[in-house]
Write a protein that binds this DNA or RNA. Sequence first.
DNA 1: CTTTGAGGAATTGTTCAACAATCCAACGAT
DNA 2: ATCGTTGGATTGTTGAACAATTCCTCAAAG
Lengths: 239, 239
Amino acid sequence: MTSPARNARSASAPAAAGNGASLAGARLRVAVPSVAERVAQELRHQLAEGLLLPGARLTEAALAEDLGVSRNTVREAFAELASERLLVRHPNRGVFVASLGAGDIHDVYTVRRAIEVSTIRNGGTTEQIAAVRAAVEEGKKAAAANDNEGLGSANQHFHRAIVAMAGSRRLDTIMSQVLAEMRLFFHKATVDAEFYSGYLKDNEQICAALEAGDGERASELMLAYLDRSEAQQVAIHGV
Amino acid sequence: MTSPARNARSASAPAAAGNGASLAGARLRVAVPSVAERVAQELRHQLAEGLLLPGARLTEAALAEDLGVSRNTVREAFAELASERLLVRHPNRGVFVASLGAGDIHDVYTVRRAIEVSTIRNGGTTEQIAAVRAAVEEGKKAAAANDNEGLGSANQHFHRAIVAMAGSRRLDTIMSQVLAEMRLFFHKATVDAEFYSGYLKDNEQICAALEAGDGERASELMLAYLDRSEAQQVAIHGV
DNA sequence: CTTTGAGGAATTGTTCAACAATCCAACGAT
DNA sequence: ATCGTTGGATTGTTGAACAATTCCTCAAAG
C-alpha cells in the first residue's frame, strides 16, 4: 500500500540566481544519504581499508572537527556502526574499533556455517548460480594478475553470492555484517599471497557441485571449507 | 586543533587475550543503562506488548515530551530500534513501527530455518538440552493454565534455547531480533488459543529427539515445524 | 469539475553551546 | 609504596535554534 517513490517536482526555484547548477548533479539522485549515514560510510570505508586498526579509539570531538560535522551526528554514526559490531562502546569511556577475541573467531564462523551451509544446500536458480560462477572467475582473474586485494574482494563476492541464493534480505545483511567484521579483523592476513589462493580451488569445486545440481555435496564442501578456514584463522591469530 | 592522525595508541592495553569483550560485557550491574538505552527498552516493551501497532507513527517531539527526555536522546533510541528492524525510518518523514510485507514473512522464516535447523543438527550439551526441556515444560504448564500469553513466551523461550545450543552470542542476538520482529507483527495472532497449543506437541517431539541424541531427526522435525508455521502465518495474514 | 500551483504549518535533520557525570592520570600526604 | 585527592579531558544529555523537507489546505486557472 505504500507507494515507494514520489516524484520530486515542485521545482518552484524561488531561490537566488545560481539555481540548478549545484542541484543538477543530484537531480536524479532522489535520496541523498543523510549526513550521519555518510559519516558512517566513511568510517566503514576506513575500517575496511585498514586505516583504523582494532582497538583504536575514536573521540567524538576529533571526528566531528575532522569531518566538519556536529558531535551529535558523529554520535549517530557511532551508534550505527556499533550495532554492526564494527565499533564497541565503553560507557563513559569512548568508542573503540572492535577487536575480535578468542571466542569471537569461532562465533563468527558459527554464524557463517549456519547461514552458508544451510543456504547452499537448497541450491538456487540458474541466474543465482551464474552469479556464484562469476565470483569464482573474478577470483581466478585476480589470481592470475597477482592482485591480492582483488582476490580478497572476489572471495567475499563468492560468499555473498552463495548467501544471495536464499533470496533473503535479512540473511544478506547479516552476511554483509559478518564479512565486514572479518575484513576488519583479518586485514593483516590479506597481505599473505597464499592466504586466498588456496581457496580458489574450494570455490571452484563448490561452484561446480552447485552447477551440477548437487546441493548436498556443495554444502559438505562448504562446511569443510569453513572448518578449515576457521582453523587457519585461529592458527594465524593467537587464540 | 586539526589532529591529522587519529590512529591512536593501539599498543599496550587491548592485549587482554582473555577478552576485552567479556570485560565490557561483564561490567557488573553497577552500570546503569544510559537514558537512550532505557528509552529503547521502554519502546521495545511497548512494541512487544502490542501497545504500538505496525504502521503507527512516532514523532520525536511527542515521545521526548512524554518520556521527559531530550529529542536527541529519543533520536538515538530510534536509531537503535531501527537497526533491529523494529522501526523504519522514512527520511524527512518520520519513523514508523515496522510492518512486515508479503515477502518478509518468508524472509524471516528463511533466517529461522538457517539458524535453528543448523544449530539443532549439531545438538548440545546436556545442560543446554535441559534448558530446552525446561521451555517445553513451561509451555505445558501455561497450556494447562490456559495462559495464552505464557504459551507464547514459552514458545519463544523454546526456540531461544534451541539456538543457544550453538553457543554463539551473534546467533543469539540475531534470533532475539527475529523473534522480536515476529512478536511485533504477529501480535494479533497470539490471542488465538489454538495457535500455540498445536506447537506443544512439536516442541515435545523435537526435545525428545534431542534428548535421545538424534540431532538429525530433531532437525528434520524442526524444519517441518517451521515450514508448517510459515504456511500458517501466510494463511492468517494476507499474503 | 478537475488540475495546478502557491502558501503555510508541522516535523525532521543538523548544528551549536552548555552542563553534569564519569573516567584517567598526575600529584601529594601518610 | 599505598592511598586518597584533585584537575583535566571526554562522554552523556539537554535545550534551543535554524534549514530543509513533507504534507495539507485552498484558491486560481484550465
